[in-house]
Design a protein around this nucleic acid. Structure first.
Lengths: 135, 135
DNA sequence: CGAGCAGTTAGACGATGTCCAGAACGCGAC
DNA sequence: GTCGCGTTCTGGACATCGTCTAACTGCTCG
């Protein structure tokens, strides 16, 4: 897809650095941390600075292009999937997997009193099936 | 309750520092970060060091006395409630509230293929009802 | 040309969390 | 008691994450 067009549609000036970040982060499935985005983008655009990557990621989040997730220890990760969905954390590798919204259902959320729920998701932890554990 | 007895039941030597940490962290409802635990405990035992608090909290987690949660930005917090339950993050204050396990139900978790789910919970974000927003 | 503005840059900074070497402690043996 | 040994505690160094600032670049408009 055309990163430049996407940025413009969201009211973001498409500078060279922003396009470079978008080209990677809007396509990836690896739920990268900010510093991982930095190193990935640096591989193609070596002169980009760390501050720019952080600024750009925060800008993308505020414009709704990305979601920031705080699921596992150490660091926020970014998810280009901004639709509602759930998450599964692989306890062995730390990898995060998206789980489609309609794969599981949550009931009685509306019955909670005292709070106005703006958003919710199921967070699961587990391991790949068939992986052997040490005896 | 008797912190000394609880520590012993979990196979932890009850040193003065560990008891001091336990006295606070096993009773609290405020979901403290490690550094908050440090300052709370220092108020009663001023000579305790930061490293000891971190070591003690990690020890308690590995022994099943506490759960470490990574829900909101910045820092892991600790929860003495080790029963299954859900969490609600107040988006205005950042406060975390425990939600009883049977208040909401999650269906079809078992139907997920490819993974062995060890644990899951619903994470909600919202605000206290009746709180006015700026117009 | 040059003033102004948006974007970028490098590095300083504060906060979080881990690690290490040495000091202090507790406890049993003598 | 006191000796010796293993455990615990301590303070500081260290690495990482994320933010901030001040200076620099490059573009547009007059």
């Amino acid at each position: 897809p055309d990163s430049v067009a996407i940025l413009q549609q969201h009211g973001i000036q498409p500078s060279a650095q922003r396009v470079a970040v978008a080209d990677y982060v809007l396509q990836t499935l690896e739920h990268p941390s900010a510093d991982l985005v930095w190193s990935r983008v640096k591989a193609r655009v070596p002169y980009i600075s760390r501050a720019t990557v952080y600024n750009t990621l925060n800008l993308f989040v505020s414009k709704g292009l990305l979601r920031a997730l705080t699921l596992a220890e150490d660091s926020v990760v970014f998810d280009p999937n901004v639709e509602r969905h759930h998450h599964l954390v692989d306890e062995e590798s730390g990898t995060i997997h998206d789980i489609a919204w309609d794969k599981v259902q949550v009931c009685n959320i509306e019955a909670l009193t005292g709070f106005e729920i703006h958003d919710y998701q199921v967070v699961m932890r587990g391991v790949r099936k068939g992986v052997r554990h040490k005896p």
